[in-house]
Design a protein around this nucleic acid. Structure first.
Length: 214
DNA sequence: CAGTACCT
DNA sequence: GGCT
């Protein structure tokens, strides 16, 4: 078998619905039951490691509320962006739910499992400015992003700030893989479409981001 | 004064 | 580009 790829068992990897600037989108990869099951798992994660709004290095808290699961959690404060082995409360991050790890395997076909599942919760007014994912040790590993709940307008830019951008709406159950050239491409979330999904009783959007950290 | 996962 |  080719190094890093699955063989045997359920080795069939889905085909991306569409590829935009190297970002591979798997549209509605999760059906309604799978989405609901994932939300249930996330309730447990959030119970163990409550959502918080990290401070940015320049003194304003992020609008998105977040927590993590896995060996590391993404964290930010005045001294910068980094991964931490513990929630700000001092407890270790809870384990990454199995269904999430299986999804990573399905979509990447990579043997190595992610160290971090960042859980981002967007309320109707939350946005995420354009940024690169560059706090990891090895940019050779892909990043996987899972959308749940309300639709979000995702914007894709370039390897450096500025220049033209392209946007697409991400819907509940969509999965995106950012690998290769797209791994360091600037991206962000401009808008949440309130009321566009009934998955979360109180509305909002959850994005799970899976990363190999070290 | 460089950085910039924020804000307008 | 402010602001830190």
């Amino acid at each position: 078998m080719k190094n890093g790829l699955n063989s045997g068992v359920s080795a069939k990897r889905p085909q991306p619905t569409l590829t935009l600037r190297g970002f591979e989108l798997f549209k509605t990869l999760l059906d309604a039951d799978e989405q609901n099951a994932l939300v249930e798992e996330l309730r447990n994660v959030i119970r163990a490691a409550p959502l918080f709004s990290p401070m940015t290095p320049y003194g304003k808290p992020m609008r998105v509320r977040m927590t993590s699961a896995g060996k590391y959690g993404w964290y930010s404060d005045r001294s910068g962006y980094r991964y931490e082995p513990r929630h700000p409360s001092g407890v270790p991050w809870p384990p990454i739910p199995n269904a999430v790890l299986q999804l990573w395997q399905t979509v990447t076909g990579i043997d190595r499992l992610p160290d971090c599942c960042l859980v981002n919760f967007y309320d109707a007014d939350a946005r995420m400015g354009m940024h690169q994912d560059k706090d990891e040790a090895d940019f050779g590993w892909p990043v996987v992003s899972i959308s749940l709940g309300d639709e979000g307008l995702f914007r894709i830019g370039n390897a450096t700030r500025g220049g033209s951008t392209e946007s697409l709406w991400l819907q509940s159950g969509d999965v995106m893989v950012m690998g290769g050239d797209a791994r360091l491409t600037y991206h962000g979330v401009d808008k949440i479409r309130a009321g566009s999904s009934s998955l979360l009783p109180k509305g909002g959007r959850i994005n799970l981001t899976l990363r190999v950290v070290d």
